[in-house]
Write a protein that binds this DNA or RNA. Structure first.
Lengths: 192, 192
DNA sequence: TTCATTTATTGAACTTGTTCAATGTTTTTA
DNA sequence: TAAAAACATTGAACAAGTTCAATAAATGAA
């Protein structure tokens, strides 16, 4: 059950079997049906999660009712609203399963426990946060500098697997464009 | 000389005087004249820096020659290209002083040393990386959901001090719009 | 202080992307 | 398997933002 998680951790740092077991034991498995929510706006995010099956979208709804996707999380990805989780403030985000999914969840208390009792866990999350920050930094630059056409082409190249599993509606919400415009981009690309 | 740095660290974690001294000793002070560079595209970023005086911009030049500002760093802010520094890959960024400035720099080797010898430093950077990630996440959502007018108004509110010290050219490059369009936004706002 | 350079403003034409409404297609569910 | 719901496409009118070129204003260096 925690095989994927173990693998993921060992990808970042080295831990003894004992440390791994003790850390993995802090997680609870949860099944989340398609369209069900792990988190809604206004709630305080009480968990950090590791996806073992399925696919989630983490998104925001703006004042005009439009949805913006912050990121998608499929198998082997971590999900949380780090803002709400860290500061214990109401979330501005929704986390919804786009397929029948399974996650391993750890609470803030248990995570703090791990920080205190397994020193390398501090390093693990330092490294993981760095990596997600680096990706977001790259995405920020792309969003500032590239046209929607190019961002769409980049998305397909970078996440061919996600591309297969997502609707154009979801991809448009990630790229920051209307789905109608995405449709026109697709036609333009196809006609080449 | 390291008073600001000490204050900044104690804002995030608690350290003994001895730990503080031992960590602060790993930094070298450097003066950077206005318009001079701490880092240029193609170089590997060898430092993590803490600004004690002045103002820097961290920016990217895209394939069309346009500049996008990833962030500004004034006194009490940290600067680095975390991507290049962490992965030891050529940077895509420029870091330039916009005023005569002073920074405290730590090398990768010394930072690794600190991780190994002062356990709480791991926590310090985990927390700091989380915070910068949270800000970037908020900025990403704003960029996806808000119009340029609103982003400009938000910028002034959020960074009134930076706003005073920056030209409209720099602000436009941060907001992701042309400076001509920013000029039109300013006129529109002024006429209200 | 003056000349050169950088920064800011403006207007007109243009491009990118949105909105709305209609229609067709696919997927889900009863 | 039929009906409903969600998703995708299209066109036309519109809004947001760019580009280019000209000019004015502010700043910096000699």
């Amino acid at each position: 059950m925690t095989k994927l998680l173990t693998q993921n951790i060992l990808n970042h740092i080295t831990l003894s079997q004992k440390e791994i077991d003790s850390f993995c034991n802090l997680f609870d498995q949860k099944e989340v049906q398609k369209k069900h929510f792990l988190l809604r706006e206004g709630q305080i995010c009480k968990f950090e999660g590791f996806v073992t099956k399925g696919l989630f979208r983490v998104y925001h709804i703006d004042s005009n009712g439009f949805e913006q996707v912050l990121y998608f999380a499929q198998e082997n990805w971590w999900i949380t609203d780090i803002d709400s989780f860290t500061n214990e403030t109401p979330s501005q985000l929704y986390i919804q399963a786009l397929e029948d999914s399974e996650v391993l969840l750890i609470s803030k208390k248990d995570k703090e426990f791990a920080y205190g009792n397994i020193p390398k866990i501090e390093k693990l999350f330092r490294i993981m946060t760095q990596k997600t920050h680096i990706s977001l930094q790259r995405r920020m630059i792309d969003n500032l500098s590239k046209t929607a056409d190019q961002r769409y082409i980049d998305f397909i190249e970078k996440y061919p697997n996600l591309f297969q599993r997502l609707t154009n509606l979801q991809i448009a919400a990630y790229l920051g464009i209307s789905h109608e415009f995405l449709s026109k981009i697709r036609r333009k690309i196809a006609s080449k």
